[in-house]
Design a binder for these strands. Structure first.
Length: 763
DNA sequence: TATATAGTGTTTTTT
DNA sequence: ACACTATATA
């Protein structure tokens, strides 16, 4: 595309175009679901560069997830061409990370700081609780961390927090907050929230650094603005203070992260915060059918205090919203599996056109089981993050220790992995010594000879420190991250040990290690800064949703939260029951704000669907081991009856939709003896769990692709692999569960892999 | 020191 | 139902 070509403007509607062309001063774009806001943002960037001669490096675009950032990056690259790479397109967290990595030494941290995930934070908090001798029954680390996180989101430091304490309990939390920060600092670590907090702190403390970035980012765009919290607001506010060219895009109806500190007032009060702001509404939806949109509008209309807007579309009416209630979650899952299977077989749809959305991660289990038995390829998004898996974290802990031994948590994690005979008592003694001498744990290890009570363990410790020293040497010699990782795996015998275990679980873990190596390799090829620290930092900011690859033909299962920003032809919203969705947490009490947030979540879910939306509910669900009887969600009831199509009407669903409410006792009326069969007819017994594949309960929930009927390549064919590029198929072996394919890659040599994982494409 | 077992508490959503 | 913790035991 020519550098002055503005033809892309022609594909925009009037409002979209106005948003693109309004480049100076604050701008609020209220973009309803599916109204093409990503298109507007990317076009706006192109317009700034082409028409307004803005330099690419003066532009910053912030999105919510890495995935969204990646998508925008791609579109911007395609549209802008040369120079696009100097535009900052990233998440809040990675932007802050990038800034801090350069300047955090001004705040007394080392620039090679590490980032703690939730797990690490909990670990630290446990230590704090022990240190302060708090009763762990009263002071739960989760609860304390939640309070601290809330404080940080409001930019409250420990002192400010303490000043506001009224109860003794709160004062203890303030103490814990302070101690927690000290420990993080000692480990040269930041938690997620700190990334924002410290950046703001940096800007406020070092005005010339702030000015540097203000000059740099003269045009700032923020996506999903409704989900920003106070810290993020401040960050943006500071950055944009000088040039005031701030464009925020959001939809108050899609604000679903209040629990994480998102402040809906940021968007509702934008015009007050940035006087003279122009407001543009995008109300035409290009994504969904009329029916879906109507349902969404109806549901969200039940919320008070929104910015008035009504989505409309020129799309076809499409089928009505489907709703069906089942006796149990198992029947529900069975139905969804069957329905998807059928629609793929008859309707010519492919697996990837389907998504199953639920309120809580715990619900994925049942669906997963049914999908396995129905032989449906699927992928569960969320749950345990790839980088949170044990073996991955172990390897990362090694890399962290090699990078700098400052992170005690990482060192302690791996000091006895593999088993070196260094146990709790030894670790305790070293930790004590380190504390007394105010040195890091790793430093203490090096003078373990002088630590009382170590004795025999000293030799073992030396073995460990020697290993680390050797690996550090290698890192210094310029070995790549991937090579270092492979050395760690080899030197520690980690993979060997797993191989010897020879279980499904251990094999899955080895797969994960390979995956990690592939990621390290990829990093070495694509990253600007290929240092070990850079790798570790990048890795800690990757969310699960980010790794959902296009192209793998699977049904996606995820929470409603993860689904934000995505769209699918066919959506199943499952678990549409009171107490499940809206969650029981949101129902009770006068406070309707939580309920409204649930309703927005429902709105987000509905608007994910392009063509067909099906809602399902169960009358009974196992909750914490106990059966719970549930009535259908009020959100279903908020959709007018005539917009809903009952799939295979049953007496339950008919009654439910006729009367405004099914009396609870009608459902409760099923006596204990009856529990096994909810509803009527010859249904499968409720309590019989499907034959569960025992996989150690670990890996199999993450990523399973069912063996294909056939492969579209044969021995001798040229194939392409996502990471390894092009190669020649040498051998295909039918290993029963899957095909084992041996490929000779042009650049990577011979690799043996499972067909379902490798996703090879014939070229 | 490492492992097995019983007992305990817990769940909403996540960058 | 599950994961985590404390305790007993090899």
């Amino acid at each position: 595309m020519q550098n002055s070509d503005l033809s892309f403007l022609e594909q925009l509607n009037q409002e979209q175009r106005a948003a693109v062309e309004h480049t100076e001063g604050p701008l609020l774009i209220l973009a309803g679901a599916g109204s093409g806001k990503t298109k507007v943002l990317t076009c706006r960037i192109a317009y700034l560069i082409r028409e307004k001669q803005v330099k690419p490096w003066n532009i910053m675009a912030i999105t919510f997830t890495n995935k969204a950032a990646g998508e925008m990056r791609e579109r911007v690259d395609a549209l802008v061409g040369m120079g696009a790479e100097s535009i900052w397109v990233s998440t809040f967290h990675s932007s802050c990370c990038r800034i801090l990595r350069r300047f955090i030494d001004r705040l007394g941290y080392d620039n090679s700081f590490t980032i703690y995930d939730t797990d690490d934070s909990r670990q630290v908090m446990k230590e704090v609780i022990r240190e302060l001798e708090l009763d762990p029954k009263v002071y739960k680390e989760r609860a304390i961390l939640a309070r601290i996180s809330a404080a940080k989101n409001e930019l409250q430091d420990p002192e400010a927090f303490e000043a506001e304490c009224t109860s003794w309990y709160d004062r203890k939390i303030a103490e814990a907050y302070l101690a927690y920060q000290k420990r993080l600092a000692r480990n040269n670590a930041l938690d997620f929230d700190d990334l924002l907090v410290k950046t703001v702190e940096l800007f406020e403390q070092e005005p010339e650094i702030m000015e540097h970035y203000q000059e740099r980012f003269r045009y700032i765009m923020i996506d999903e603005y409704q989900d920003t919290n106070t810290a993020q607001f401040r960050f943006v506010d500071l950055l944009a203070a000088k040039y005031r060219n701030l464009c925020v895009v959001g939809d108050d109806d899609q604000s679903i992260y209040k629990f994480r500190g998102a402040n809906i007032r940021n968007i509702l009060n934008f015009e007050q915060s940035f006087p003279g702001a122009k407001v543009i509404k995008l109300e035409q939806n290009y994504r969904s059918t009329q029916s879906i949109l109507n349902a969404a509008n109806e549901v969200i209309a039940h919320n008070a205090g929104r910015k008035e807007k009504r989505l409309w579309t020129q799309n076809a009416e499409g089928p009505k919203i489907g709703f069906r209630q089942f006796g149990s979650g198992y029947e529900e899952a069975e139905y969804v599996a069957g329905e998807i299977r059928q629609r793929v077989r008859n309707g010519g749809a492919s697996w990837k056109d389907f998504a199953v959305l639920y309120r809580t991660n715990a619900m994925s289990r049942t669906f997963e089981e049914k999908f396995i038995t129905a032989n449906i390829p699927y992928k569960i998004v969320g749950g345990v993050n790839f980088y949170a898996r044990r073996e991955v974290k172990d390897m990362l802990a090694y890399l962290k220790t090699i990078d700098n031994g400052l992170d005690d948590l990482a060192v302690i994690r791996i000091i006895n992995i593999p088993k070196r005979g260094i146990g709790q008592t030894t670790i305790g003694r070293i930790g004590q010594y380190a504390g007394e001498h105010e040195i890091s744990f790793y430093e203490a290890l090096k003078c373990s000879d002088r630590i009382p009570g170590i004795g025999r363990a000293a030799a073992k410790i030396h073995g460990f420190t020697n290993l680390i020293t050797r690996l550090r040497g290698a890192a210094g010699d310029g070995f790549s991250v991937r090579e270092l990782l492979e050395m760690v795996i080899k030197e520690t015998g980690y993979a060997e040990e797993l191989k010897a275990e020879d279980t499904d679980e251990s094999r899955a873990r080895i797969e994960n290690l390979d995956e990690l190596i592939a990621k390290a390799e990829d990093f070495g090829k694509t990253a600007e800064d290929t240092s070990l620290s850079a790798f570790l930092q990048q890795v800690s900011l990757v969310a699960d949703i980010d790794s959902v690859e296009e192209g793998s033909d699977c049904v996606l299962l995820m929470t409603l939260h993860s689904a934000k920003g995505l769209e699918f032809d066919n959506v199943f919203m499952v678990g549409m029951e009171e107490k499940t969705f809206p969650s029981y947490m949101a129902i009770n009490g006068e406070d309707t704000s939580e309920l409204e947030e649930e309703r927005r979540l429902c709105y987000v879910g509905i608007t994910r669907a392009r063509k067909e939306l099906t809602m399902t509910a169960a009358q009974m669900r196992m909750l914490r081991g106990e059966p719970e009887f549930l009535k259908a969600s009020r959100f279903v009831r908020e959709i007018p009856r005539e917009m809903v199509r009952l799939e295979r009407e049953t007496s339950d669903t008919r009654n439910f939709l006729k009367s405004p409410q099914v009396p609870l006792d009608r459902l409760m009326g099923m006596g204990k003896a009856d529990q096994g069969r909810a509803g009527s007819g010859e249904r499968a017994p409720l309590f019989e769990r499907p034959k569960q594949q025992k996989t150690g309960g670990f890996q199999m929930r993450e990523f399973r692709v069912v063996k294909a009927d056939h492969l579209d390549y044969a021995e001798g064919d040229q194939v392409r692999h996502v990471k390894f590029g092009v190669g020649t198929v040498q051998e295909i072996k039918d290993g029963g569960k899957d095909y084992e394919v041996t490929v000779d890659f042009e650049n990577y040599g011979i690799k043996r892999m499972f067909a379902s994982f490798a996703k090879l494409k014939k070229v």
